[in-house]
Design a protein around this nucleic acid. Sequence first.
DNA 1: CATTGTGAACGGATTCACAGCC
DNA 2: GGCTGTGAATCCGTTCACAATG
Lengths: 217, 217
Amino acid sequence: MPRQLPPKWIIKRLPIYLRVLDDLKKRDITIISSYQLSRETGFSAEQIRKDLAYYGAFGTRGVGYRTGYLREKLLKITGLEKVRNAVLIGAGHLGIAFARYIITKNPYIDITGIFDNAPGVVGQTVVGIRIQPIEKIKQAIKAGDVKVAIISVPVDAAQGVVDMVVEHGIEAILNFAPLNISVPENVFVHNVDLTNELQSLVYYSTVGNKENGDFKK
Amino acid sequence: MPRQLPPKWIIKRLPIYLRVLDDLKKRDITIISSYQLSRETGFSAEQIRKDLAYYGAFGTRGVGYRTGYLREKLLKITGLEKVRNAVLIGAGHLGIAFARYIITKNPYIDITGIFDNAPGVVGQTVVGIRIQPIEKIKQAIKAGDVKVAIISVPVDAAQGVVDMVVEHGIEAILNFAPLNISVPENVFVHNVDLTNELQSLVYYSTVGNKENGDFKK
DNA sequence: CATTGTGAACGGATTCACAGCC
DNA sequence: GGCTGTGAATCCGTTCACAATG
């Protein structure tokens, strides 16, 4: 169990372990060593052991980790034993594609509401979810006990939308709008800036960095 | 000028400085201090100064940074003075949305080819670009002097596609497929794992981390 | 005198090396 | 013997504090 402060970097890796374990489950593999996990994830074996050991001694010395047991532990740690609800605000191309992606590929998170204000968009249906006007968001958050919001509105609208959802009880935000949004202390924001990801790449391709520069390594 | 090894973390921030400078240019602001940049970006002023100073002394003590000059320097450092070409492989919903996003929002990168193998998809047009069969990719890379590829194909196809584009001279890859792809030493891979981003968020919302946990801070 | 540029201190994540255990 | 768990050592990015300077 986490003692005081949760170490940020581990948390970025936990869902990756979880995905590998889901895959191993399908392949009926019941035992895995940190070295094999290393190959699957690209993280070092030592790091994987440190990560897991932080939350408890889940492995067996000389043997490895039982995949089923480890998976259950990770589900509990990440808070994904129960499917979690999320709402998405901004049903542009990017927002809709993301919603579709999550709904079809992610068994742990359910997008229970999609919201937008554009008249042509409201009322349309994406993978079975009807796009609603933004005014409806308050009741959707309450009804679904939603703590997570995905923001994919244009830059100018982002801060306003964030203020609104925070007021209605959202605790964590995935933000696709390329700006530094401000939130209260207790709200967690993670920015995904797709333009930047691509521009950083150009640096590596032109400067021709000859080390292996993968951020994961 | 970079001496030996390029420090990874700076490079993730450079494009953000660039965007702010683009914005300042539109607003006809010609001088900016590290403290103002701090407000715009969310990074600390010291960190911004360190980042910029790594590449040279671009500012004026007691005054600040001339936005036009700094922007030019950053364009040169990031390799974005000239528009760079990129190809996208995998024209599913996510790939198409990303292509559209980059083409409409990003003045520095041009997506010059979109490739897929699905019969129903090939031949369609996205924002003026016709989707071509994957076999055509070799000549597209040569013709456009393309160094950057975006991979948005299903997991099972990803490694094969990566091997192919690397063989044709691609040096940097933005990978949306959720797996640890392997590449030669001199190729840079950056993984964008949208499922993980969302799952990490759930951890913060359920555990209720009360610190400010934004990765940017 | 406001602001940059930077060496030094700090902190936290990763790696090393090995003890502990099946 | 092989693999986990972990304290110690290391590495690296960030913050601090202040000297340099237009």
